[in-house]
């Protein structure tokens, strides 16, 4: 558990590949006390805004603050839930519609902890991580996305 708590790198450049997600799952086959994994994958949606489709989201962040915030969210989740391990990956840069920009992966002995922790982490990220998505349209214009989130404790 100690090993899981040190500051981990969350940001990856560009989209998170399905192969990477698969390999992450495979790596846990040696941890045989785990009985449940919960995974959240955030995919870029081709919203239509004022008649134009979103082609991609270009993510940027206040890196130093975001790394600290991700660390705090990780610590809080380990306090609140009984987790065997936890991984958070967030994209920076351009992620095309249909590609993955957020990957949250929690594992526990029984399913409740993994599932609840996963939802908790995703909500905290949406609400508190200093990350911005610039939605790029097919006509070259852009808007800055705004998150809807549930208040978390």
């Amino acid at each position: 558990m100690i090993e899981e708590k040190k500051v981990k790198k969350v940001f990856v450049n560009g989209p998170i590949s399905p192969v990477f997600v698969g390999e992450s799952i495979a790596k846990h086959s040696t941890k045989q006390d785990i009985g449940a994994h919960s995974i959240f994958l955030g995919q870029v949606r081709n919203d239509i805004i004022d008649g134009n489709a979103v082609l991609a989201i270009d993510y940027s962040a206040y890196n130093e603050m975001a790394e600290e915030k991700f660390h705090e969210i990780r610590e809080d989740a380990f306090q609140k839930y009984s987790l065997t391990c936890m991984h958070i990956y967030h994209s920076l840069g351009r992620v095309e519609a249909g590609e993955i920009g957020l990957f949250v992966f929690t594992s526990s002995i029984h399913r409740e902890d993994a599932m609840e922790a996963c939802a908790y982490i995703v909500e905290r990220i949406k609400e508190q991580a200093p990350v911005w998505g610039r939605e790029v349209f097919d006509d070259g214009r852009h808007v800055w996305k705004q998150n809807n989130f549930k208040e978390t404790q």
Binding site: G42, Y59, A61, Y62, M65, A66, H90, G101, L102, V122, I125, K126, E127, Q128, A129, P130, V131, W132, G133, W144, K145, Q146, N147
Partner: peptide, 10 residues
């Protein structure tokens, strides 16, 4: 000092 517009990660 950082000016932070509404977040939109995830």
């Amino acid at each position: 000092v950082a000016l932070l517009p509404p977040f939109s990660g995830g």
